[in-house]
Design a protein around this nucleic acid. Structure first.
Lengths: 190, 190
DNA sequence: CATTTTAACTAACACTTGTTAGTTTGATAG
DNA sequence: CTATCAAACTAACAAGTGTTAGTTAAAATG
């Protein structure tokens, strides 16, 4: 029982993430959220302490999962290209499991308040480790020696947008998607 | 004098776009906007008719500019790969001129209300014409015959995220960026 | 059975929201 | 000089905001 049972709080957070994805954090009221769950707004406060806390719970846990994944990939004894493939898989897997949460992470992180600084640290570190892998690949002759920032930006943009795209293509399984996407990102389209 | 002089309304819209980019449409109040301009909220209404109208003005004009650009590219007598390069340039140029507006277009389109349907039509049409160019390229043997949706998604995600990235790299001029980005998107990174 | 826990409720609060009405001020045009 | 106009102002409103306090009913626990 490492993962705690489905508590009421978890249901609230899950529902909130769905609403946040559709309208954004600021446009979702506690009455919206309560209404969707079939209860009154005040009842939410038996389970959560504030609207803010919901957002924090959604985003920080996801961000930490990425940090954890990157840590493992970084220390693996594989080629840089293989590391990139693992990064793609990391994004596909996390996003497949929680597209709503990923929408909040991408669009509503600026409303984090107390946890904003922490989130930004995680994000910056993640990007730098991503860049390090690219540079490592260039030095090893595996990756073309052109503009690293453009490569990094292009890959990250695509991976961060997965939350929009995955729900529209439920037929494609994560394995296949991860494979196709890696190929396009690494080898291009020609 | 095809473009009308810098009116007060234009200044309001420009300021609003900047704020919308930072916090999102819903989190920006008319008092925020007025405060940033050094006036009172009520004074805004001498120039605009509603908050809603500001968002509409920002997004729809941009969306129509993309539609216009795509129309020209589609009918050009050039290879599919050249068309893709022109699409990249279209995004880089429009985004360079208005990163704030592009943030609203990407993140706040769902708050358009009356103009939402129209916006969605423009967006869907744009994506379909983009896809048609890829298919055309596959049929002509210029582009690899793998998953079209993955290619389309990857390219569009990157192009739509330019608004985040361009402001951080003011040193890179649009020409150079467009060139680098086309290479990465088309040829990959190996 | 008695008690604690879970999860809902009603009522209300202090504050913020977009917006309207009516007014004032300084510059421009006839 | 007078009239017009652009652009600001004050004051206010009705609706909606997140949240708190206190209560109730049913289920789980001892």
């Amino acid at each position: 029982m490492s993962t705690p049972a489905n508590t009421r709080k978890d249901e609230i957070i899950k529902t909130a993430a769905k609403l946040f994805k559709e309208k954004g954090y600021s446009a979702v009221t506690m009455r919206d959220l309560a209404g969707t769950m079939g209860i009154k707004a005040a009842s939410l406060y038996n389970h959560i302490s504030s609207k803010q806390e919901i957002l924090k719970d959604i985003i920080i846990s996801l961000a930490e999962t990425f940090t954890e994944g990157m840590r493992e990939i970084k220390s693996a004894e594989i080629s840089s290209i293989e590391k990139l493939r693992k990064i793609v898989k990391l994004h596909v897997d996390i996003t497949s499991n929680n597209t709503s949460g990923m929408a909040s992470l991408n669009n509503d992180w600026m409303h984090l308040e107390e946890k904003l600084e922490y989130y930004l640290t995680l994000r910056t570190d993640y990007e730098e480790e991503f860049r390090d892998i690219l540079i490592e690949g260039i030095n090893a002759g595996e990756i073309e020696d052109s503009n690293v920032d453009v490569m990094l930006f292009s890959m990250l943009s695509t991976l961060r947008s997965l939350y929009i795209w995955i729900p529209k293509k439920e037929d494609l399984n994560p394995e296949e998607l991860s494979e196709n996407l890696s190929n396009v990102l690494i080898n291009g389209i020609v």
